[in-house]
Simulated scan of single mutants.
Amino acid sequence: MDTQAGQDARRWLAEAGVTQVGDDAWTDGDSPERQLTTNDVAHSWAGQAFTDERLDLAGQLGLAFGLLDLLDDYWVTCEIRFADRGPGGPLPSDALWDGYRRRLEAPETADAVTYSLWADWFEDRDTCETAFAEVLGRDAGRLRTDSPEPLLRRARRVLECSGPVPWAVKESAYAIAARLPALHAALFAGLLGSHRDVYGDLDPSAASALLTGLSLPADTAHLAELRAALTTGHSAAG
């Protein structure tokens, strides 16, 4: 994603001798003959953003988000989480979650961000409630058929990866999404994940009622499976 933060991160890497020479090819000034992948750069440098003493914690976080924009690599989100949960944390909450929201709303793909939410923030019972509230829950009441596309895009992405979020935390947002046909496919993905994910969580009766009201193509993959599972009262894969 081409952002000012990403451009700043590129300059920061260049100061350290790390430059891009291809789509997935970088070189390091210390070993210019050795080619690095984007993932190599993420593993070597994302954590270093939080050791740059020229920046305060908010500035370090901004740099890390710039590296995420530039590299589009999940490992950058891991380093952000390590910094937040580690001895130097927590990170400034407003800046942390604003960074997530902005990237969830952007037209560009947000796979690293949604995977981070699903596998890290939502599966962890210490962080799932706050994380879900920050990326969707607190804004769910603003969802309308005529809501701005960036908000709807964020809602879709969060719903799709929300399977591990405890049912009591997400039920209200799910109920609101069920009233908006534009979110039905994403809500179905959330319900399916709530059933199938190892850490998925749902209430079978409430989930079945939501599923019944969704406008979905009859040949939607796994639709019959989910209907049958909820009818028999299966709450989650685990």
Rank of each mutant, 00 (worst) to 15 (best):
Y100R: 07
S172Y: 09
D219C: 09
R154N: 01
L187V: 00
H195E: 11
C161F: 10
L61R: 00
H184F: 00
S31L: 03
A186G: 06
M1Y: 08
L192M: 08
T19M: 12
P92N: 08
H184D: 06
A237R: 00
A206W: 04
H222N: 09
A133V: 10
S93G: 04
W118S: 05
F188D: 04
L159H: 11
D56R: 06
S205M: 13
D124S: 14
S205H: 14
A58R: 12
L91K: 08
A177L: 02
W45R: 10
D28C: 09
A175R: 15
W97N: 10
Y100S: 07
L202F: 02
L152M: 14
A224P: 02
A207P: 10
D30Q: 01
G200R: 05
D2V: 02
L202E: 08
A185K: 12
V21F: 00
A236H: 14
G59Y: 11
V76R: 06
T220P: 04
D124G: 12
V165C: 03
D94A: 15
L71E: 03
G200K: 04
T231L: 09
W45S: 01
L61D: 08
L214H: 03
D84K: 12
T231M: 02
A133N: 10
T212V: 05
G88V: 10
L55P: 00
H195P: 04
R11C: 05
K170I: 02
A207W: 05
V21K: 00
A49D: 11
G66F: 12
E105K: 11
D2F: 13
V165N: 02
L216N: 08
L226Y: 04
L211G: 06
G233P: 06
P107G: 09
G59K: 01
R102Q: 14
L152R: 07
A189K: 15
T114W: 02
T145G: 15
Y115Q: 15
D84V: 10
G29N: 05
T3E: 07
F65W: 14
C161N: 11
P90Q: 11
G200C: 09
E225L: 09
R34L: 03
A218T: 09
Q7P: 02
D94Y: 03
R54A: 15
P217T: 05
P107M: 09
G190I: 14
A228Q: 15
A155V: 00
A16G: 14
D124A: 14
L183I: 08
A207F: 05
S235V: 13
R125C: 09
Q35W: 07
Y100D: 07
H222G: 06
A49S: 14
R34S: 01
H43P: 00
A177F: 09
R153L: 15
D203Y: 01
A42S: 13
